[in-house]
């Protein structure tokens, strides 16, 4: 048990907080117009400096993912979840598939073999109840 245990100690914490919030929004854990924890609640809960938390929240506000209602708190901007999922889909090819295919090329794995693996997996996935 260490302070802010859930966060790794190599990356800026505000970045990790922002990423988590984005994840929650993308996975609809935080749905449209849902109120998010206040920075102070978040800070106290995770034992993190409130200024660090505020910086992460501000980044999402600047991104248009959250909006503020004065005196009430912060809420998820409608459509944010869909927007993030769109972004992630388009990044999937570049960030995830790209390195995989590069590696496959280096290892001289034929494209057909890779396609076969993907088809087999998706069949298995479909075949599951």
């Amino acid at each position: 048990m260490s302070a802010g245990a859930a966060f790794d100690d190599r990356t800026a914490i505000y970045r990790q907080i922002a990423d988590r919030l984005r994840d929650d929004i993308a996975r609809s854990v935080l749905s449209d117009d849902a109120q998010v924890m206040s920075t102070n609640q978040y800070a106290a809960f995770h034992r993190i400096n409130p200024a660090t938390v505020a910086k992460a929240f501000q980044e999402l506000v600047d991104d248009g993912l959250l909006y503020k209602r004065r005196g009430v708190g912060m809420f998820v901007t409608p459509g944010s979840g869909e927007r993030l999922r769109d972004e992630r889909r388009s990044r999937f090819v570049l960030d995830v598939l790209g390195p995989v295919l590069d590696e496959a090329e280096r290892l001289a794995i034929p494209v057909d073999d890779i396609l076969a693996v993907i088809r087999a997996r998706s069949t298995t996935a479909k075949g599951r109840p």
Binding site: S2, A3, G4, D9, I13, A44, I48, N49, P50
Partner: peptide, 22 residues
Amino acid sequence: IAMPRTIIVSTHLIDEVASLLE
């Protein structure tokens, strides 16, 4: 959080306090 003020903590146990610090 209840009353922000200037706080200085001296230590060499950095892991424990790192997330609290600005």
